[in-house]
Design a binder for these strands. Structure first.
Lengths: 240, 240
DNA sequence: CCGAACTGTGAACGATGTTCACTCTGTCTA
DNA sequence: TAGACAGAGTGAACATCGTTCACAGTTCGG
């Protein structure tokens, strides 16, 4: 490939910039990641950073993309530690890994899955599925849901509510794999949003007013989740 | 009460400041709300604003509190348009109102229910339940869940998973009302996080890569939700 | 080996939050 | 009613921020 010294040096610089930016994000939140602070930390001039990124927004956008890849790797790794023939356990493992990573990287999580950062459009904004990081993480879950569907244990609503409402490219994705039908995608999206709700609420600190042991709550939710995926439901009547 | 002219003038000024801040937030996102922009818009000096708020963070914190109150009012109003004897419909009405307000006020929603703003601790951080705005909104849902519990249609997990994990003050809240037991609180929290997940993901733009008609998806989720609250579940087996 | 592209510099501009000493003015008390 | 006092507004100043620009040094390819 004949990579010149400059090219090697450049990718190193880009990597270090993002690394420092992330460290600043972690220690001081979004407002702490500034070009001047980065340049200071690196012993460079601020203007030199513009040789690598056209703007601060572009820098955090790049960082965001990298973070998605990291979260994806973590999720996939957790899945692969569970045998293939137990889709429910695989889903649970991914969910736990997802939450754990988020809790251990709150600032990063906020940057990735919080409100859109004004400057830059993230990889999840453009509907050009499924070759974007977000879709890739979701796809891991979707695969297990497809397996469950094949086994006939998946609980789905009687009528398919999103038939015809999928993003075209994702529609293609479904059509490509014969074993995935839109009810499966709906079940996945339902689970995906639900998982996001529990985790994001906890990470963003919107549950501290009600629950002390959020881990316990999460596991309880996960248990109910597993029961639902296994096809059983329990109905405990109230006193009335 | 003998309110002096100055006092009246002061509350007007505070109100106008928050008003202008909100307008700036809506038009330009969080970075657009700045003391200088506010003072410019109001024909004042920037330093004069410090007579009303000790810092910018304090200002947005105050704005955030006000927004919670507004969202609460909207939610309660939607509930009260449905007869008391149909708890499920009341829950659905509140959920729809919640989502609609969020969609029509994306920036405000992000400020309220996104990642915590670094400068100021919000009303949902301190665990001093339930006299805070967030808890008040949740309480509206909780009330309907209690009614469903009384009717014996609420689906709850076989073992109570959050017994002893509630915030003490919320525990008191439960103890005060004889008709609310912790399984009800768990069911509520489960629903609350789920609702948050669907709505926040849509508002933050994290679903555009998969679904075009998010309204349809939301309604489908709501339908499944209503079925669950009514105590019925449907299990459609896959082809396997 | 030499021109061209890449990388880094330092100064500058406009914007931001915050502080400070200073006025002016309404309010309350002696 | 007169004067003291607290509230409200001013303008300058400081440090920080993103961004741009002309300039200098270094590396690469023909």
């Amino acid at each position: 490939m004949a990579t010149t010294w400059r090219e090697r040096r450049r990718v190193e610089a880009v990597a270090e910039i993002k690394e420092v930016a992330r460290r600043l994000l972690v220690s001081g939140g979004p407002p702490a990641v500034s070009l001047r602070a980065i340049s200071r930390e690196m012993g460079m001039t601020t203007s030199a950073l513009y040789r690598y990124f056209p703007s601060l927004d572009a820098l955090v956008a790049a960082l965001r993309g990298e973070l998605f890849e990291e979260l994806g790797r973590v999720t996939y790794a957790a899945r692969d530690e569970v045998p293939e023939d137990d889709p429910i356990l695989r889903v649970l493992a991914m969910a736990r890994a997802f939450r754990r990573w988020g809790l251990e990287h709150r600032q990063e999580f906020g940057l990735m899955l919080g409100p859109p950062v004004p400057g830059a459009a993230g990889p999840d904004q453009e509907p050009g599925a499924p070759d974007n990081p977000v879709a890739c993480i979701g796809a891991a879950f979707l695969g297990e849901f497809a397996e469950l569907w094949r086994r006939g244990t998946l609980v789905v609503p009687p009528d398919d509510p999103i038939e015809g409402h999928l993003v075209p490219s994702l529609d293609l994705y479904v059509a490509r794999r014969a074993d995935i039908e839109t009810p499966v995608v709906f079940a996945f999206l339902s689970a995906w949003t639900r998982l996001y709700g529990i985790i994001a609420m906890e990470i963003f600190g919107h549950m501290t007013w009600a629950v002390t042991d959020t881990e316990e709550f999460f596991e309880a939710e996960l248990a109910g989740f597993a029961r639902q995926l296994a096809g059983e439901t329990r109905n405990v009547p109230g006193p009335g």
